[in-house]
Design a protein around this nucleic acid. Structure first.
Lengths: 252, 252
DNA sequence: AGTAATCTATGACGTAACGTAAAGGTCAAT
DNA sequence: ATTGACCTTTACGTTACGTCATAGATTACT
């Protein structure tokens, strides 16, 4: 037999909460002559159950159904509820993504405008990309032969090599820009996206699907990239992103 | 000059919503003699702003601060708010994860109980692990020399090799079990977690931080693993998971 | 112009899960 | 007996409106 505050302290909830649960008939302990609520061990166990489902983000009315009905299939309820939560999370994902988008618009428009004029050549982009992904790359591949070879390779590129590589990259992009009125799933589009991935793999590092997807995200997440890419053609970054994701979705 | 319903229809909100916004002083249009609210184009623009931030999951009071104060830094607000949303998402992650945990307990207790008796040796676990991660592994590393070599290596293991590897693995686990009363961040614990990662790298494949983290999750996500691991010591799977995450967090 | 249909306005209650007083009894210790 | 900690119920506040209810204004149609 515990009094409200004891139970509250033990369970880590407020007294008001217990009052509330009593009020809505979710957990109604015995009442003594003095009007006090006295909780039994069973009440306490029931409270634990309630708190468990609450932790799972169930509504109190749902919890009442569940703990009230002994034939209720707990596992089914959990599975069902999990779907709801996943939807909620998806929604948050979308919102967060939208905020990123908006932030890019601001930052891309302000901080970058003057800096852009000092960027002589799009090649910087590739270099920056390399730097940015160098750490992660190293981490993913550890110190495999493949990575060391890749690092060696790019370090050994001559000016002429760089120019050639850049030209090839531009050519691929131009093809894609010409296809911007198509759907991202269009076979022709996908063909050039594949070429883009191959180009990176050929000249920089083994560009896995994971990394390629990350790259796609970066194109629209990092305002510096978005700006640079959209310079070629407005909306190109977004188009690339979508097409690359489409590609990755079908290649995993 | 639009009347409520016109604005409501245009903006896709209810009339009641506009009333409400007027009531709380968020959007107060001019009122004519007949008492009607008349919205100007500016009011409409302001409403668009409001709805934008609402879409971003801001509370109306926050929105009032933002659209009310022209000196308010919109970008800063977005950035700040993004953090809140990320926290929310994290919370959802945790809840969903907990539900998975609970489901595993149910399913693990039922579906698995009889099957377990037919699993003669813990080594199966390693094999299954290999199979399960083979595809992903291939994808991450593509066809690098390192991967091919790794695959070749494990294929060439003799029975004796397997036994030795298994023993080594057991030894590491035993050390960790002995440390289960410590915090997951304890240096001694972390030392053996590192040994675990190294062990996998040495004998199976280059176990990157990413993969190691995935492994940790699998230990408590996949009931087969949880069951098997907890057979050694109850709660060991969870302990491993936490310690491995701790390790990964400090090694990226 | 008369009438009906439609639109408008202002309350005011309901929602979910309690938080936060307020006003007043109860219990254990001093 | 007094004090302080704890108990009770009552009831309003919170979020962002939904949902009536009642009543006046406008518009459409005959």
């Amino acid at each position: 037999m515990y009094k409200v505050k004891e139970v509250a302290d033990l369970a880590g909830v407020s007294v008001r909460t217990l009052h509330h649960y009593d009020q809505i008939g979710l957990l109604s302990p015995a009442k003594a002559d003095n009007g006090y609520r006295y909780y039994t061990d069973n009440d306490f166990i029931r409270l634990q159950q309630i708190l468990f489902f609450k932790e799972m983000d169930f509504s109190l009315s749902r919890i009442k159904e569940i703990v009230g009905d002994p034939s209720f299939n707990e596992m089914h309820a959990l599975k069902q509820h999990k779907e709801v939560l996943i939807e909620k999370r998806k929604r948050l994902d979308k919102i967060i993504y939208s905020i990123d988008q908006s932030l890019e618009t601001y930052e891309g428009g302000r901080t970058m405008s003057h800096k852009d004029r000092f960027e002589p050549f799009d090649m910087k982009q590739i270099e920056e990309h390399q730097k940015q992904y160098a750490k992660e790359t190293e981490q993913r591949w550890g110190n495999t032969e493949a990575y060391r070879e890749s690092a060696k390779r790019t370090a050994a590129y001559s000016e002429e090599d760089w120019r050639r590589i850049h030209e090839e990259s531009e050519r691929i992009d131009q093809h894609l820009i010409d296809l911007m009125d198509r759907s991202s799933a269009d076979p022709e589009v996908q063909k050039w996206i594949a070429a883009k991935q191959q180009h990176i793999t050929d000249h920089f590092y083994n560009c896995s699907i994971d990394i390629f997807r990350g790259l796609a995200d970066m194109y629209i997440h990092d305002p510096r990239f978005t700006k640079n890419i959209d310079k070629k053609k407005n909306g190109f970054a977004k188009f690339l992103h979508d097409a690359m994701h489409e590609y990755c979705d079908h290649h995993q």
